[in-house]
Nucleic acid binder design. Structure first.
Length: 482
RNA sequence: GGCCCGUUGGUCAAGUGGUCAAGACGAAGGCCUCUCACGCCUUAAACGGGAGUUCGACUCUCCCACGGGUCACCA
C-alpha cells in the first residue's frame, strides 16, 4: 500500500492569504495522518504575474505555521526539480506521446480563424461564449506532418469524447458526472511550446507520484478533463479533495488585497501561528468530537476528509480572536512577555514593572496589537472628573474617595516592599482595620492611579506597575483635586 | 446563457428516516469581583420554498428560488 503523497502548488504571485494556507494545511494533514509526504511545488510559469520575493513568503509562511514539507525546491527530493519553470522540457514530450496514443491532436488554427469560425459571440445577456469546433481533429497524419515540417505554428489540443459522460469521484463531493459534449478540446501545449497550467499540473502530479490532490473547488469543473487526461495516458487517477472557498463575506471570496486575509498581516497584528492554523482547520472542517483547541500534531490525528464541508465558509475574525486569546492565555509568563513587550514599549516610555503589567494584560489580550490602546494612562495621567469616583455598588463617591485616599496615603508612603504582594498586604490590612469593603479603598485607588474608567488590573496591580514614586504622586494629585 | 456544485441560528458547524435539531464564537441576562477581562450559570436564535416517497422527513426523489464555480494559447 502506497503512502499518501500530497502537494501544495502555489504560484508566487504575492501574499499568502489564509484560504491558500488552509488548502496547504489540509494537504499537509492528509499526508501526515497517513505517515505520508507533503510536497511543495512552485508553479511559476506565469511570468506576467510573478512577484519578487513571493517564493520566500511561501517558504516563510509554511515554516512559520509548522507545515514542513518533505520535498521541495529548497530541499530537493526524488522527483526534483520542484519548480515548474525548470521542468519545461518534459511537457512537450508527454503531449506528443498523447498524440500518438490518440488522446490529443495538433491544431493549426490561428486566432483569426477561430474568431471567424467559432465566433467569439457577444451574447447579449452574458459574456463571450467560445468553443473550439474541433476543426483540426480530422487532419490526416500526412497533412499534419507536412504543416509541422513547414514550420507552421501550432498548439496541441486534448481530444475529448463527443458522446457519453465522464464520471469522476471526489472525496468531498462524491461522484460527479458530466456530459462529454460539454468538454472543450482544451489546449495542452501553447503555440510558444509552453504547457498550459491544466496540462502541466497533471504531468507533474503524476510524475511526482501524488496520490491525493487537494485544491480549491474552482477546479471542480475542470476535473473531468484531468481525469480524461490520466486515462488517455493510462495513468492511475489520484483521489480528489476539492475544498469550498474561504469567504470574506456572503458574496466575496477572501482576497489577497484585504489585510486581514493575509497570514503575515495577522501575525503582525499579534495572532499566534498555532492559533491561526487551529482556526483555519476549523473553518471548513469539523472534527468528530467537541474539542476545538488543537495543536498541529493533534490536528494530524483528528483530521478526516469526511469532516470537510461542501459549502463556502465566511472568515470570522471574532472566532479567530477567541481562539487566539485561548492560546495567549496558555502562554508562559516569559513567552507572553516576549510577544507583548514590543507592543507595550510602543505605548509606554515610563519606567514600569513590566512583569506585573504582563500578568495583568495576559488574560485580557485577544491579539497583541490590541495592547497599546489599553495603556494610554500609564505615561500620562489623564484629566479626569471626580465623578469617576462614584461607584454604585461600592457606594463610593468623591467624598468617600477622599477619606479612602487619605487613609491609604500614609500607609503607602511607609511601604518599602512595592510589589503586588507588598501593596496587597498593607492595603488589605488597612481594609480590615477600618472594617470597610474592599472596594471602598481599592476603587478610589484604581481611579486615582489610572484616571480612566477601565484599566488592566485593579488598584493594587496598577500601583505595582507604576512604582512607588509615581503611584504616590497620583494619589496626592487625586487628593488635591477632591 | 450552458454545465457543475452548494443551501441547518448572525458566524463556524454536528446531524446521515424517528433527537426537546448538538457544540463553539458572537449576542442578551446573571454570578464572581476594586473597573475591565478571565471563570461559572442561564436565555434568545436555524433545517430556503413547494411537491412527492414513507407510518414518519433536516436526512431520499423531483421542481423552483437563491448563492457560488466554470466555460482562455491565466493559473
Amino acid at each position: 500500500m502506497n503512502k499518501v503523497r500530497t502537494r501544495f502548488a502555489p504560484s508566487p504571485t504575492g501574499y499568502m492569504h489564509v484560504g491558500n494556507l488552509r488548502t496547504a494545511l489540509y494537504a499537509y494533514l492528509l499526508a501526515k495522518k497517513d505517515g505520508g509526504s507533503f510536497i511543495l511545488r512552485i508553479e511559476d510559469t506565469d511570468r506576467e504575474r510573478y512577484v519578487e520575493g513571493a517564493t520566500e513568503i511561501i517558504y516563510n509562511t509554511l515554516k512559520d505555521a509548522g507545515l514542513v514539507w518533505d520535498e521541495g525546491p529548497d530541499i530537493g527530493g526524488p522527483y526534483a526539480p520542484y519548480v515548474q519553470s525548470e521542468r519545461m522540457g518534459d511537457y512537450l514530450k508527454y503531449a506528443q506521446e498523447l498524440v500518438e496514443k490518440g488522446g490529443a491532436y495538433y491544431c493549426f488554427c490561428t486566432k483569426e480563424e477561430l474568431e471567424a469560425r467559432c465566433g467569439i459571440e457577444e451574447n447579449e445577456q452574458e459574456g463571450k461564449i467560445f468553443r473550439y469546433d474541433g476543426h483540426c481533429k480530422q487532419l490526416s497524419a500526412e497533412e499534419v506532418r507536412r504543416r509541422l515540417d513547414a514550420g507552421e505554428p501550432y498548439v496541441i489540443r486534448q481530444k475529448m469524447p463527443t458522446t457519453g459522460t465522464t464520471t469522476f469521484h471526489d472525496l468531498v463531493y462524491g461522484d460527479i458526472v458530466v456530459d462529454n459534449a460539454e468538454l472543450e478540446d482544451q489546449i495542452l501545449i501553447k503555440s510558444d511550446g509552453m504547457p498550459t497550467y491544466n496540462f502541466a499540473n497533471v504531468i507533474d502530479d503524476h510524475a511526482m507520484g501524488i496520490t491525493h490532490v487537494v485544491r480549491g473547488n474552482e477546479y471542480l469543473s475542470s476535473a473531468p478533463k484531468y481525469n480524461l487526461l490520466y486515462e488517455a495516458f493510462g495513468w492511475p487517477v489520484p483521489a480528489y479533495i476539492h475544498c469550498a472557498p474561504v469567504m470574506k463575506d456572503e458574496h466575496h471570496k477572501l482576497s489577497k488585497r484585504n489585510g486581514d486575509a493575509s497570514y503575515q498581516d495577522l501575525v503582525a497584528k499579534g495572532y499566534l501561528p498555532a492559533a491561526i492554523i487551529n482556526y483555519l482547520a476549523l473553518l471548513g472542517w469539523a472534527p468528530k468530537g467537541e474539542q476545538e483547541i488543537f495543536t498541529l500534531p493533534e490536528l494530524v490525528q483528528a483530521f478526516d476528509v469526511s469532516g470537510i464541508s461542501k459549502s463556502p465558509a465566511i472568515f470570522d475574525s471574532e472566532k479567530l480572536k477567541y481562539i487566539n486569546s485561548e492560546y495567549i492565555r496558555a502562554l508562559s509568563h516569559e513567552d507572553y512577555k516576549k510577544h507583548a513587550e514590543p507592543f507595550i514599549r510602543s505605548a509606554v516610555r515610563r519606567e514600569i514593572n513590566i512583569d506585573v503589567l504582563c500578568d495583568a494584560l495576559q488574560p485580557r489580550t485577544e491579539f497583541f496589537a490590541d495592547i497599546p490602546e489599553r495603556l494610554g494612562f500609564i505615561d500620562e495621567l489623564p484629566e479626569y472628573d471626580n465623578a469617576l469616583y462614584e461607584h454604585k455598588k461600592m457606594k463610593t463617591n468623591a467624598e468617600t474617595a477622599k477619606a479612602a485616599l487619605e487613609a491609604m496615603l500614609p500607609v503607602l508612603e511607609e511601604l518599602d516592599d512595592w510589589s503586588v504582594e507588598g501593596v496587597h498586604a498593607v492595603l488589605f490590612a488597612l481594609i480590615e482595620k477600618m472594617g470597610v469593603k474592599n472596594g471602598y479603598l481599592l476603587w478610589p485607588l484604581r481611579v486615582a492611579l489610572s484616571g480612566v474608567p477601565v484599566s488592566p488590573g485593579g488598584g493594587v496591580e496598577l500601583a505595582a506597575i507604576l512604582g512607588k514614586e509615581e503611584s504616590l504622586r497620583r494619589v496626592r494629585k487625586g487628593l488635591a483635586q477632591l
